[in-house]
């Protein structure tokens, strides 16, 4: 009997768990990264430092939605002069268009795991469909003691856009048109 109870507990611990609820994106672990070809010489990396958003997830029902708002002025490529230029009307025009948003329209699942997000990306008031492939997903209790086992879901996702589709054409074709996107996202379940 004792052995059966241990086996039951062990089974419950390793069995797939359904995750469901509303989550708030953790801005300290949610960053949209981008890479772009620079003059044909090298691939430049950058990211946006400030994001906020929410996630709705129900792995049992295979439903999910995500909404991310990015502070366009928080662009960071590691060089202030270049970042100032990227904020100017030549590129993101952040004074006029301070927010970049991504809202999902459909999330596909592979088993219990979200695998693809179809959504709409809005930059400078231009909205285009963008599909993100989820390359990693994990939900579980946060391991750090001070988080008191808070339920957290994390994802890595990749996508690609052409910046010219959003009206950002400065420096074409010397500065690449193809922009690779990579999101790192963590979201804590709302209490």
């Amino acid at each position: 009997m004792k052995k059966l109870a241990v086996l039951t507990l062990l089974g419950a611990a390793i069995a797939p768990t359904a995750w469901a609820g509303s989550y708030t994106l953790d801005p300290t672990h949610t960053y949209p990264h981008f890479t772009i070809m620079h003059l044909g010489f090298s691939t430049m990396h950058g990211r946006f430092d400030k994001t906020e958003g929410s996630l709705e997830l129900d792995t049992a029902k295979k439903t999910a939605s995500v909404s991310i708002t990015i502070d366009a002025a928080s662009i960071n490529t590691g060089f202030i002069k270049r970042d100032d230029h990227l904020r100017s009307p030549d590129f993101f025009n952040v004074a006029e268009f301070p927010k970049i948003t991504y809202k999902s329209t459909k999330v596909s699942f592979n088993g219990d795991t979200p695998s693809q997000v179809e959504g709409e990306l809005t930059i400078m008031n231009v909205t285009k469909p963008v599909t993100l492939e989820i390359t990693h997903a994990k939900c579980g209790p946060h391991p750090m003691p001070q988080m008191k086992g808070k339920e957290v879901c994390g994802f890595n996702a990749k996508g690609a856009i052409k910046r010219s589709d959003f009206g950002i054409k400065y420096g074409l074709p010397a500065i690449g048109d193809d922009v690779a996107l990579e999101f790192e996202v963590e979201a804590g379940k709302n209490q």
């Binding site: 009307p89 025009n93 006029e96 268009f97 400078m124 008031n125 231009v126 009206g167």
Partner: peptide
């Protein structure tokens, strides 16, 4: 002749 988005410039 593109005016979308209609930016300040």
């Amino acid at each position: 002749l593109e005016f979308v988005p209609l930016t300040g410039a």
